[in-house]
Amino acid sequence: MSRFHVSITPEPDSYTSASNKGSQFHSSGLPYATTNPNSHLNMSSSHNKYSVLLPTYNERDNLPIIIWLLTKTFEENKLDYEIIIIDDNSPDGTLEIAKQLQKVYGENHIVLRPRAGKLGLGTAYIHGIQNATGNFIIIMDADMSHHPKAIPQFILKQKERDYDIVTGTRYISGGGVYGWDLRRKLTSRGANFIADLLLNPGVSDLTGSFRLYKKDVLHHIINATVSKGYVFQMEMMVRAKQFNYSVAEIPITFVDRVYGESKLGANEIVGYLKGLWTLFNSV
Rank of each mutant, 00 (worst) to 15 (best):
M1F: 11
S2N: 15
F4R: 00
F4P: 00
H5E: 12
S7G: 08
I8Y: 14
E11H: 11
Y15I: 14
T16L: 14
A18I: 13
S19F: 15
K21V: 02
S28C: 09
S28P: 01
S28Y: 01
L30P: 00
P31R: 06
P31D: 08
Y32K: 04
T34C: 04
T34A: 10
N36V: 04
S39F: 12
H40C: 03
L41S: 15
L41C: 14
L41V: 14
N42Q: 15
M43G: 09
S44I: 15
S45A: 14
Y50D: 00
S51M: 05
V52S: 08
L53S: 00
L53G: 01
P55F: 09
R60M: 11
P64R: 08
I66N: 01
L69Y: 13
L69W: 11
L70H: 02
T71M: 12
E76P: 00
L79P: 03
L79K: 04
Y81L: 03
I84A: 01
I85Y: 07
D87V: 06
D88T: 06
T94W: 05
L95E: 03
K99T: 09
Y105R: 06
Y105K: 09
G106S: 07
G106C: 06
N108I: 02
L112Y: 07
P114Q: 06
R115M: 13
K118W: 06
K118M: 11
L119A: 04
L121K: 06
I126R: 13
I126T: 12
H127M: 05
Q130V: 05
N135F: 08
F136S: 04
M140G: 02
A142L: 07
D143F: 03
M144R: 10
S145K: 07
H146F: 11
H146G: 03
H147N: 15
H147I: 04
H147F: 04
P148V: 11
K149D: 09
Q153H: 09
I155A: 03
Q158E: 13
Q158S: 14
K159F: 09
E160W: 12
R161L: 08
Y163P: 05
R170W: 02
S173I: 06
S173C: 05
G174F: 01
Y178N: 14
G179A: 08
G179Q: 11
D181E: 03
R184H: 12
R189G: 13
A195V: 09
L199R: 08
P201R: 03
F210A: 07
R211F: 10
Y213I: 07
Y213W: 11
K215F: 14
I221N: 01
I222W: 05
T225H: 10
V226H: 12
V231C: 11
V231T: 15
M236P: 00
K241C: 07
Y245E: 00
S246D: 09
S246H: 03
A248C: 05
E249M: 01
P251Y: 02
P251L: 08
I252H: 06
I252A: 06
V255Q: 15
V255A: 15
D256M: 11
R257C: 11
R257L: 15
R257S: 11
K263I: 05
A266E: 11
E268S: 14
I269F: 07
G275Q: 00
W277T: 13
W277N: 13
L279V: 12
F280R: 09
S282P: 01
S282W: 06
S282H: 13
V283H: 12
